[in-house]
Nucleic acid binder design. Structure first.
Lengths: 349, 349
DNA sequence: ATTTTTTCCGTGTTCGTTCACGAAAGTAAA
DNA sequence: TTTACTTTCGTGAACGAACACGGAAAAAAT
């Protein structure tokens, strides 16, 4: 039978009523210091753990987690994925009184993050899950949350200058390092390899820089003889070819190509139309990338499980706030290698 | 507030007591046919879903899942991994009254499966989770379970001749196919590639055969010029070299090597001692393999998340038996590619 | 000394469900 | 017709926890 310690057992041992034990547990009402310490000692000695089923059944409390995320767009569908995980987690926790309130900012509008952050603060949620996109604004928001004693957790990246209760993200530099290993595994010695950033503002995307660092670090550590060429473009595949032309490089010379984010489809489309087939590695299972992967035009997609990040972060908030468990601060998602051969079996949560 | 339909709402609508609704829901006691149909209609119309928290709190029922698994040994620690996932899942479901009763068979003793299967049947569990190892015995056991109306689920593989409510496993042939892609990606054209089975009885390990088939299929489909050499050994790496010598092949000619199970460390150790460095791909994160992977002696380990298989299977049993959800019958785990660079971030559950 | 206020605590109800007990009505047997 | 048995159903208590209400005792104010 279920042999858990109950509030009743503590009350019997302390010679008080269960109402008094409840007051100590929840810092509710008033209990004399002497009685409080006696009860707390017994709680600690017996390692009392509330029955979560009973607790949630009896409690009328609604727990609100607010989320602050980039709005997914037709050009960038990546950000719809953490939503899926968040919604799945909240659905699982619904019976426990957990609800979400979602706030979305426009990545192309520099005021948007601040506006939505303001709304989020007004909502006064129990906890916050956010993607720390605009660094300065995110730091400001986290300061406000600290003042209000509202715990928060990051997904996708973390910010060193702030005090989240945790984060869920992939190690960007290690994923870049692995990309380098894969390219090296597949190309001849002394090949020309492209490292490509596709981003409007590299400032807001420090994880792209980290990926680059990891990638370069591999070749330096291994003393490889490949030629690595870095290219930064803001939005089209054609820009890549223009860069190569300016440098007097024929695209046919490119043996391998690493794009530091989900925009790898732009590069792959571009080389596809040139009938050039370098080894191509990029990130994320967005529809355009999946299509090209299945056509064999992209060789590997590195996935960071955005869905799982959202899912796991909500569960961490729940564990911390409701179950009062100690949670891990650093939660790295696996660096998943997806190919045309294994994609159909890939579970993102 | 929580707006779920309660038993009380159904009782009010049907003009009966909550006790009668409960009796209909659980096919308990006796209710007249007329009253039963009226209540059932309302249950369906309102799509009533029990509050699982309240149900488990009130119910004294203990739900026993029995497991029938190979005993892990010092030479083969793989089978300790599903245990971890099973135990984690059961711990999560403990508050709902779920318990496990575990039965282990010795893979080297042909009677052991039958003996343990007999004990399992005597225990008369609510459901069974098993690894269908000894095919004939497993079929016999599943027939017995069918007679007793005890649902069962497989991990690691499935048996076509039986009627499990589901299985959780990796697609063996697709994982072999991916191994072929990886080897092909990394070796020169027309290389010598070894396909190695390390097993005492191939009969009991049809998934090794499936992996082989997938591996060979890749090269046939792509019309590759590599030379594929199949070797079967029963237990040591030295046997591999003996086979090569009998065929007049110098180990230095081996460019790539694929071992169809977790015994890849035997082959890697062997080639390591010969100071030969083919590309090496095998399965499973057992300690010996992890060590060699981190030393760079094994290039890829394909992982099928045994821990997750156990975890997921328990949750599927719970969803099916307790929540009365419809569960997916075929649950393929992802085909994970693990390297020295991403292993530290790999989460097996 | 008396009255008012504060502190402290016990008790009862709630949450949604499970399950045992026994009363009432209907049916069958003597 | 009376007695015994069966069917059907309502009611109350249990599960463990949350939380509101109010009574009793102690402390503070008059």
């Amino acid at each position: 039978m279920r042999k858990n310690i109950r509030i009743k057992d503590i009350a019997l041992k302390a010679g008080v009523s269960i109402g008094t034990v409840d007051r100590v547990l929840h810092k509710r009402g008033e209990v004399s210091e002497e009685t409080k310490q006696k009860i707390q000692q017994i709680i600690d000695d017996l390692d009392y753990r509330p029955n979560l089923l009973a607790s949630s059944l009896a409690s009328k409390k609604i727990i609100v987690f607010a989320t602050l995320m980039p709005k997914a767009s037709s050009q960038d569908t990546y950000w719809s994925k953490p939503q899926l995980g968040i919604e799945k987690a909240v659905n699982q926790l619904k019976a426990y009184g957990v609800r979400i309130q979602q706030f979305f900012f426009d990545m192309d509008d520099s005021m948007s993050f601040s506006v939505q952050a303001g709304k989020l603060l007004e909502a006064n949620p129990d906890a916050v899950l956010m993607a720390p996109w605009a660094k300065r604004e995110a730091i400001r928001l986290s300061g406000k949350l600290d003042e209000k004693n509202i715990p928060y957790i990051y997904i996708d990246a973390t910010l060193e200058e702030t005090s989240p209760i945790g984060f869920v993200a992939q190690s960007s530099s290690d994923s870049g390092y692995l990309a380098a290993k894969l390219i090296d595994w597949g190309v001849k010695e002394s090949s020309l390899i492209l490292l490509i950033h596709v981003a409007k503002e590299l400032d807001n995307a420090s994880h792209l820089i980290q990926r680059e660092r990891g990638f370069i670090r591999y070749f330096e550590e291994k003393k490889k003889t490949h030629r690595i060429l870095k290219i930064e473009v803001s939005g089209t595949g054609e820009e890549i070819v223009l860069h190569l032309k300016k440098l007097g490089i024929d695209p046919c010379e490119v043996a391998g190509l690493f794009v530091t984010n989900s925009k790898v489809h732009l590069a792959a489309d571009c080389f596809k139309s040139l009938c050039v087939t370098p080894k191509i590695i990029g990130y994320d299972l967005i529809p355009q990338n999946i299509k090209l992967l299945k056509e064999g035009k992209i060789d590997f997609l590195i996935c960071q499980k955005p869905e799982l990040q959202g899912f796991h972060a909500i569960h961490l908030l729940f564990d911390s706030l409701v179950k009062k468990d100690t949670i891990k601060k650093e939660n790295f998602t696996s660096i998943d290698l997806i190919t045309k051969e294994n994609i159909d079996f890939y579970n993102s949560i």
